[in-house]
Amino acid sequence: MRKLSYFIGMSLDGFIAGPDDEVQFLMDHLSPAYLEYLKTEWPETLATAGRRHFGCDDAENTHYDTVLMGRATYGLGLKDGMVDPYAHLKTYVFSRSLAESPHPAVELVAGDPVAKVRELKRQDGLGIWLCGGGNLAGQLAEEIDELVIKTYPVLAGDGIRVVSGEFGPRPYELTGSRSFDNGAVVSKYARKR
């Protein structure tokens, strides 16, 4: 069965974006060594335009072949004209407000996210990447098998939490961690069942 991984960047205080969907404050902490790590270890998590820019557009998907995101996360790229931000992955956008997909390769899901993820887990393929946002992560909390958290050395104070939803502790086990010269730390956790 395929795994659902929440691979996400966040501030030290647990925010994935600012109150108005700002993410640049996280991107300000990229460095050549850190970008090289993402290019070689997690190439499918770079947007298609980023893959071209960094010269890794021919890289094979190593972890994921499917990406899930909420409407707000999808909207970040959409406002810059990226109608299919991850053309190298099968893309699902969970939204009750979008009536029609801006791109034929992007499938809109208006129904129950949990039911859709369970359906996807039963299919053959690589892992499933939940790339945002916090609301969708909260709805899918029971289905998240793995966390890959890129923690950046900045406090946000307010914004969109990494997971939004009702209180419900879910234990994870640290399976790996790597720190970088830019102060970022990438930590990987497996769900304890």
Score class of each variant (00 low, 15 high):
Met1Trp: 07
Met1Ser: 14
Lys3Glu: 14
Lys3His: 07
Lys3Ser: 13
Ser5Arg: 00
Phe7Ile: 04
Phe7Cys: 06
Met10Tyr: 02
Met10Phe: 10
Met10Arg: 07
Ser11Lys: 01
Gly14Ala: 05
Gly14Arg: 02
Phe15Met: 11
Phe15His: 06
Ile16Trp: 03
Gln24Ile: 13
Gln24Tyr: 06
Phe25Met: 12
Leu26Trp: 00
Met27Gln: 09
Asp28Thr: 14
Asp28Asn: 14
His29Gln: 08
Leu30Tyr: 15
Leu35His: 02
Leu35Ala: 02
Leu35Asn: 03
Leu38Ser: 05
Leu38Tyr: 01
Leu38Met: 09
Lys39Gly: 04
Pro43Ala: 01
Thr45Lys: 05
Arg51Ala: 15
His53Asp: 15
Phe54Thr: 03
Gly55Gln: 01
Gly55Tyr: 05
Gly55Cys: 10
Asp57Pro: 07
Asp57Thr: 09
Ala59Cys: 12
Glu60Pro: 14
Glu60Asp: 13
Glu60Val: 15
Asn61Cys: 12
Asn61Trp: 00
His63Glu: 14
Asp65His: 06
Asp65Gly: 12
Leu68Val: 12
Met69Asp: 01
Gly70Met: 07
Gly70Leu: 02
Tyr74Gln: 02
Gly75Ser: 15
Leu76Val: 06
Leu76Gln: 00
Gly77Ser: 08
Gly81Pro: 08
Gly81Met: 09
Gly81Leu: 13
Val83Phe: 10
Val83His: 08
Val83Asn: 07
Asp84Lys: 05
His88Asn: 13
Lys90Ile: 13
Thr91Phe: 02
Thr91Lys: 01
Tyr92Ala: 03
Phe94Thr: 03
Phe94Gln: 04
Phe94Cys: 09
Ser95Leu: 10
Ala99Lys: 15
Glu100Asn: 05
Ser101Glu: 13
Pro104His: 08
Ala105Cys: 11
Glu107Ala: 09
Leu108Glu: 07
Ala110Lys: 10
Ala110Asn: 13
Val114Glu: 03
Val117Asn: 02
Asp124His: 07
Gly127Cys: 12
Cys131Gly: 15
Gly132Trp: 05
Gly133Trp: 00
Ala137Pro: 02
Leu140Phe: 02
Ala141Tyr: 00
Ala141Val: 12
Glu143Leu: 06
Ile144Glu: 02
Glu146Arg: 04
Glu146Pro: 08
Leu147Phe: 02
Val148Thr: 09
Leu155Asn: 10
Leu155Tyr: 08
Asp158Asn: 07
Gly159Tyr: 05
Gly159Ser: 09
Ile160Asn: 09
Arg161Gly: 11
Arg161Pro: 05
Val162Gly: 02
Val163Ala: 10
Ser164Met: 08
Phe167Leu: 07
Gly168Pro: 10
Pro169Ser: 12
Pro169Ile: 07
Pro171Ala: 09
Tyr172Ser: 05
Leu174Ala: 09
Ser177Arg: 11
Ser179Gln: 13
Asn182Pro: 06
Asn182Tyr: 01
Gly183Arg: 06
Val186Thr: 02
Lys188Ala: 13
Lys188Pro: 08
Arg191Val: 12
Arg191Gln: 14
Arg191Asn: 10
